[in-house]
Structures are given as C-alpha cells and as structure tokens.
Simulated assay, not measured.
Amino acid sequence: DKTLNDQTETGRFRKPHEKIVVADMYNEVFHDPPPADQLEKRMDDMCNFANAKTPDYFIHPVIRAIILHFWLAYDHPFVDGNGRTARALFYWSMLRNNYWLFEFVSISQIILNHPAKYGRAFLYTETDDNDLTYFMLYHIEVIKRAIAELHQYIRRKTEILQTIETEMQGILTFNHRQRALISHALRHPQQRYTIRSHQMNHNVVYQTSRLDLFDLEKRGVLESRKIGKTWYFTPAPDLEEKLSKSE
C-alpha cells in the first residue's frame, strides 16, 4: 500500500508517453521494455501461459513459474513494482501447482542481496535472442539456495526448541499441563487458547484450567484478552527469549 508517489498509477499498465527503462546503479540502461501499446496483447498471452492454456505440450511447473517471472520482468507493464510483481507471480504459479513449500521459501532476499547476478542472467538472456537458459539456470540456483536456507533455519529453530523443552523439564514451577502448552505455543506462536480448550485437552476441572492459564499469563508466558465472556490466551511475542533467560 502507498508504495507509489502517485496513487493513480496503482494497478494500471504504463502508457505510451511514460518512458520506462531498466537501468543499473550507474543509470546505464540494460533493458528497454516492449512498447506500451503492445502490453494488452502480451499480458493476455502471459495469462494464457500462466493458466496452462498455452502451449499445447507439457512444461514442467517450475519452468513455467520461472518463465512467468522473466516474462513479467521483461515486459515491465507497470510504472513501478514490476520486480515485486514478477516474484509474486512466480510464487503464485508454484503454489498453484501444489509446491506448498514455497509458502515458506524466500527467493526475494537472495535476489535483492545479489542484484548483479540477477541483472547478468537477465542481460545474457536478452542479448542471446532471449535464450531463457541463462535465466533458468540462475533461478534454479536461487531456488536451491533458498530451500537450503529454509532447512538451516528449521534445524536452528528445532535445536533451540529442543534445548528449551529439555531444560524446561527441570523447571518444577511449571506443572506438566503448563509445560505441554508451552511446548505447543513455541511451535504455534499464533495459536489462541481458552480455559475450555485447556480443560478439555487435559481432562481437568474448569478452575484448574483457569489457574494454569492465568498463572502463565502472570509469568509473562501468555497474554490474555477478553472478548465477550471468553478469555483468550496467546503466546507472548518474545516467548522463546523469555524462556531462554529463565533457564
């Protein structure tokens, strides 16, 4: 929202009088997008390709997603935000084809951290009769690196959670029900708990459940909010840090 100085430019194609070029940090132009009067036809073609209406032979979904990324970036149909939109289109295509992992994989940061590599892959493709091999090989390496970084992140988080859970077993001030809830909260930081749900999960009376949750709130593990007649409890935003300090 409000990423453009002129909000009337939002969501529309660039016009013939709006000269849009892609330049490097030294303002050297390395890509001059197709004329604006061709955009409607080119975007129709791209949408047909995105929805697998064309061509009439199989294209691997990952390759299709990469081509869509290049296609929108090449056509540069908007006044601004073409890079973000191209990456969003790549994600959309991957998720649409059930590559659900890409809900958690970030290619954007890798591309933004190494803009020269992205620029060279784009330039090599354009200067070699739009041979997409260069861009595809580059993009596949980005995907591989992004997945590797996700795996590293998961390993780090798993080790941290396992350490906290192991050491939490020795904290006698938390009962077994509270430890179970904390363990769940560490893995589901957006989860909402109620006295009733905690009661049902541990087969205890209402008052015991209530004491458990309000005790955790008092210690800063949970935050509470009353909506109507129901109390809702959510994990503290800095739960992991608080538990680490309490060890």
Rank of each mutant, 00 (worst) to 15 (best):
L172T: 14
S209F: 06
I227C: 09
L132I: 05
R84I: 15
G220V: 01
L137A: 14
H151F: 06
P189I: 00
M46G: 01
Y138C: 07
N5F: 07
D44Y: 08
N51D: 11
R225H: 12
Q199L: 04
R156P: 07
D24W: 02
N113G: 14
H17M: 06
H188K: 13
L68P: 04
I67A: 13
M46V: 06
R120Q: 14
F214A: 10
D212H: 00
R96T: 05
Y193V: 02
V21N: 10
V79A: 10
N113V: 12
T163W: 07
T194Q: 10
L72K: 06
T54Y: 04
A36Y: 00
Y91A: 14
E240S: 11
N97E: 00
H139A: 15
N203R: 04
V204H: 05
K15M: 12
I227Q: 10
G220L: 01
I140R: 12
V22D: 09
T54N: 04
Q38V: 11
H114F: 14
A52V: 06
M200T: 12
F104I: 13
R14S: 05
D37H: 13
Q191N: 09
A116W: 04
H184I: 05
Y153L: 15
S183P: 01
R156F: 02
E217P: 12
K242E: 14
G119D: 03
H188S: 05
E28S: 12
D45L: 03
F78R: 02
I107V: 15
V221N: 02
V22S: 11
A50P: 00
F49Q: 05
A86E: 00
V29R: 02
D215G: 10
E223T: 13
E126T: 06
G170A: 05
Q191T: 15
I227K: 04
S197M: 13
I171N: 08
E217C: 14
L101S: 13
F214E: 14
M168A: 06
D44K: 14
D238F: 09
Y118K: 03
E141N: 05
G81S: 02
L123E: 05
D37C: 10
G170D: 09
T234F: 02
I67G: 04
